[in-house]
Design a protein around this nucleic acid. Sequence first.
DNA 1: GCTTGACTTAAAGCTAACTTTAAGTATTAC
DNA 2: GTAATACTTAAAGTTAGCTTTAAGTCAAGC
Lengths: 145, 145
Amino acid sequence: MYTIGQVSEMFSIPASTLRYYDKEGLFPGIERKSGIRKFSNREIEALRVIECLKNSGLEIREIKQFMEWSTEGSATYQQRKELFETRLKKVAEEMDNLQKTMDMLKYKCWYYETAIQDGNEERILSMLPDKLPPEIQKLYDSAHD
Amino acid sequence: MYTIGQVSEMFSIPASTLRYYDKEGLFPGIERKSGIRKFSNREIEALRVIECLKNSGLEIREIKQFMEWSTEGSATYQQRKELFETRLKKVAEEMDNLQKTMDMLKYKCWYYETAIQDGNEERILSMLPDKLPPEIQKLYDSAHD
DNA sequence: GCTTGACTTAAAGCTAACTTTAAGTATTAC
DNA sequence: GTAATACTTAAAGTTAGCTTTAAGTCAAGC
């Protein structure tokens, strides 16, 4: 059993944020002793799922929905499974998107490395849009679909 | 040369957002004809970079800084290069983080598939924390470092 | 010449996710 | 017993990034 301060330390999350999460219903049925929250393994695992769902782009009120489903036993297994499947797809898309972002960033790194070497951008501009070195051309094309 | 409406269509960005970006200084020196903005290839390419930097987690005011550097010629090549290098590192970290998020999501998908098959979570809980099927154990460990 | 549709502005409004504040209670260390 | 520390609350404040509103200008088609 942990206090809010201990959990705050463990997860590097401000206690005020944990209180906010509780107020928003993310720890349904959390135990209390004379007003003070007692975080058990259930809440610790909940917090790991909260972080995961938040990273997947889910909003707090949708995470609350999930936490409510979790208190309803086997009747909501299907909904919960579908939620995770949907989130998985979403994150896979986000990864694809970030891969394109990285390609653009790598292209720009090359661009400025080359500009620094040359002292100007003229040689680069004369290679655009399709006479860049092969590796760089790939990055450029990926970023300029 | 494009009007704000054409650019809005091309990039699927509301015209109001493009005006907001302009107000925030993201199109320094954009041309106007009797008050109306004229988006040239320079602004189109700027918009691609804006999207890229935004996806990398940069704030609008930092993107503005970059756009100002871009008007200052070769004197700022170094800063611009470093900006893209820093962003690249940041996005690579974000990708790692998302990979962990995906592992947790995959684990949860398996969890609920199994719970649906069994009708309850008992068998799964008896396998925790280190007697899960090998492939699933990997996901679980990755998500519970 | 008048209607239509796309553009313009400044300013106010919105939303999510916290974060801070102010005032108070409870527990632990000495 | 008292001082320090950690907890409690409700409510107000903050921030980023838009989005909407209201009032107006401008060019093209009929």
